[in-house]
Design a protein around this nucleic acid. Structure first.
Lengths: 274, 274
DNA sequence: CTTGATACG
DNA sequence: CGTAGCAAG
């Protein structure tokens, strides 16, 4: 099975980390709060917290998250149409220079999937990539998304290096899920989605976890609630920190907090020396 | 508050009871089974058990109820159209002479609301009367139901005396609910529904509980789950055993099992010497 | 299996 | 408030 490595405190060039970012698909922020997700967040105490699948309009947010004095800067995006669907959030200790929503393409920007925060040295893009659905009913749409999202990231990267984090809804290689053989036609592991991710990396980005741990098996961030998958570690690595190649020198560690409960995904944490 | 009387074992003429019937609106038989409703039923051990609001098609019934060797004779009715809506059941130790479903009026017989069992000395009609709804949206329909249901009961009564039991969705008099003043426009306590019940009794039937206990206050069978109504005994008497006048001589007791949990209604039990 | 929205009570 | 269905994952 997957057993976590100790946290690397320094980058390859020996600089100690001074930025911590956590990303977590919470699968319903209201249920997640009841399951004490915030307690773990307070212990982890990242500088920036990115949440996906909040499934909650801003008015219905639990008071506990709306407060959080540790994070005076909070940004919320939710689905325009379907109530209780999708939705992402970014909470930051430091105030970003600028925050934008969506990727600038009308048809992709109605479901509360992307928040981009500009900081001094980098952009942080927090995303919940569309699931291709049962029976791959939305795979075609997903391919359009992948093209447009890639273009968006490239355009940002021209200005300043970026960190992309979130639930990218793809397991890149066979090593990134327990049962690759039987999931080639399952959303999240089709050739189309996997090639989409490969194309992104070819544009000058790196999968931070895989960069540090090229051969680590059984490292997953998602387990279906069905069939006791988590108990058996039958999982998928769907959540990532993708970095502009220019930031690889600053990378200290990319952690998977696989034991942390509260959702069908576990949180992941990035340590960066910026 | 309401405190129960000891069980009367004999009729006015001194005959000991030899038939026990229990009626319970279970508000979802699957949830009710999980809350151990069957355990209480086993202790109470009625000869005949009538359940309302099973909210369950026959195929989805919990195995625990389908088994029950104590009740080899089981009858189920459910809504034709809306899955998980309404639905009644009758379980009997003794096999009835005949069992029929509905009241013989097309427009009323699609929602699984009535099962009639003919026994040697009486008919047993188990009913879940239509709720008039929030904003009384279905009061007009309810009035039609009341007329047709009354006609049905009268027609049966011509052949053989009857026992009507179930959730009749009306609190007859002010004494039958905690807050009569504020509920005159609420489903279950409108003049129309109350007069419907009065008309039924005028056709030669008796409210067994009220017949025995004409002045007992705070005796309720339903409490909304909201606002801790049950804790404060803010309730309604909506569940009844209504008897043909001819059966009053056989009546031993009509009990409200107000402490029994498992639904927003409590069970009621009839003791008859037949 | 689990979340959340909706219908109904 | 609580039970069902449903859509989505």
């Amino acid at each position: 099975m997957y057993s976590d490595h100790p946290e690397k405190q320094t980058s390859a060039k020996g600089k100690k980390w001074n930025l911590k970012v956590t990303s977590w698909n919470v699968d319903g922020i209201r249920a997640w709060v009841k399951k004490n997700g915030l307690e773990w967040v307070r212990e982890e105490s990242p500088d920036i917290l990115c949440l996906q699948e909040t499934k909650c309009g801003e008015s219905a947010l639990p008071a506990e998250v709306k407060d959080m004095p540790e994070y005076p800067n909070k940004y919320w995006a939710c689905s325009d149409e379907k109530e209780g669907y999708s939705g992402v959030a970014m909470l930051s200790k430091k105030k970003p220079i600028k925050v934008t929503y969506g990727i600038g393409v009308e048809e992709h920007d109605k479901e509360g999937r992307v928040i981009t925060a500009e900081f001094d040295k980098f952009f942080l893009v927090a995303a919940y990539v569309p699931n291709s659905g049962r029976g791959l009913v939305r795979l075609e749409y997903r391919q359009k998304w992948d093209v447009d999202f890639r273009a968006y990231l490239k355009s940002l990267d021209k200005k300043k290096p970026l960190i992309l984090c979130g639930d990218l809804n793809v397991a890149h290689k066979e090593i990134d899920l327990k049962n690759p053989k039987t999931n080639k036609k399952t959303a999240g592991f089709t050739v189309e989605e996997r090639e989409g991710f490969t194309s992104l990396l070819e544009e000058g980005f790196a999968d931070s976890f895989r960069h540090l741990y090229p051969d680590t098996q059984y490292a997953y961030t998602f387990w279906t609630y069905m069939m006791n998958a988590r108990g058996k570690n039958v999982g998928w690595r769907l959540d990532y920190f993708v970095l502009s190649d220019a930031l690889l020198d600053n990378l200290c560690d990319s952690k998977i907090r696989s034991k942390v409960m509260g959702s069908d995904h576990c949180p992941i944490t990035l340590l960066l020396a910026v």
